[in-house]
Design a protein around this nucleic acid. Structure first.
Lengths: 130, 130
DNA sequence: ATAGGTTGCGTATATAGGTACGGAGTCAAC
DNA sequence: GTTGACTCCGTACCTATATACGCAACCTAT
C-alpha cells in the first residue's frame, strides 16, 4: 500500500484538495504530521472521517452540527436522537414554509392566466405597494 | 409633511438603516441627492420600492432576482410570468429534496426506537463508513 | 539533472444578505 | 453654546462552505 498523499485522498473521497485543507483548518479532520522526508500521508481513518462528514451533509447537517456529531461518537443514543430530531423538525418547518411559498406563487401566476393584456402584469401590480 | 431622513425611512419600512444603505450600494434603490444644507431625505417612491423588495423576498426571490423584477416594471406580463414560473419550479424541487431528507431522518430515527442499548447509537453507526 | 506536477502554507475570493464600526459633520433641544 | 442624537461615508466583519492564487519547496519520470 503506497502512502496516501493529499491529492490521492482527495480523489479517493471525491472532494477537492482545498476542501480537505479547509476541513483541517476547521478541525474536522486531523492533519497528519509532516514527515522529515516527503509529504504528509493520510491514514484510513481520515478517509472514514470524510465519508462520515459527507453522509451527514446529505442528511442536511451543517459542518458545525457535524462537528457536534463527531464529538458524540461515544455518547448515549438519546443524545444523538435529540440532535437528529431537532433537525427533522427544522426540515419539516422548512417544508411548510416552502408550501406556503408555492401556494403564493401559484396564486400570483393564476392571476396572469386571466390577464388579456400582456403589456401589463398583475404580478408586478400586486408586488407594488397598496 | 416633515422631511424623511434615513432613520425615519428605516422605521417606516421596518428595516435597519444599514440595510437601506446596503440597498443603495446594490442599486436597488436610488440614493436621493444630498442637499446643501442638512441630510438626505427620502421620497415616497423609496418607501414603495422597499415594500416591493420585501414582498418579493417573501415570495422567495433573491435580491438579484428582484433587481430583475424591478427592471421588468414595464415588461410584458409573459416575461414576469416566466420568472415567477422558474421560481415556482425551483421551490417545488426544493420541497421534494426536503421530503427525501425528512424520510431519511425518520428512518434513521426509527432505528433508534428499536434500540435497547442507549450507550450505543445506530445513527452514528450508519454514518460511519462500511 | 532537469522539466513539470505536487505539496505546503498563507491569504484572498466567492455567494447572499446584511450588520457593525470609526470618525467627522450636523442638527435640535435645553 | 454645548450636549447628545443622528447622518454620512468608507470599510470591515459576519455565517457557511468552500474555491482559488501565489510562491517556494519538493518529488518523480525521462
Amino acid at each position: 500500500m503506497s502512502k496516501r498523499t493529499i491529492s490521492m485522498l482527495a480523489k479517493e473521497v471525491s472532494v477537492n484538495v482545498e476542501t480537505i485543507r479547509f476541513y483541517e483548518r476547521k478541525g474536522l479532520i486531523n492533519q497528519p504530521p509532516k514527515p522529515m522526508q516527503g509529504y504528509r500521508h493520510y491514514p484510513n481513518e481520515t478517509v472514514n472521517r470524510i465519508h462520515f462528514i459527507k453522509r451527514s451533509q446529505e442528511l442536511g447537517f451543517t459542518l458545525k452540527e457535524i462537528e457536534g456529531l463527531l464529538a458524540l461518537n461515544d455518547s448515549p443514543c438519546s443524545k444523538v436522537q435529540e440532535l437528529a430530531n431537532k433537525k427533522l423538525i427544522a426540515v419539516q418547518k422548512k417544508k411548510a414554509d416552502l408550501l406556503l411559498l408555492e401556494q403564493a406563487l401559484e396564486e400570483h401566476l393564476s392571476q396572469c392566466q386571466n390577464n388579456d393584456d400582456d403589456s401589463h402584469c398583475p404580478i408586478i401590480d400586486s408586488l407594488q405597494p397598496k
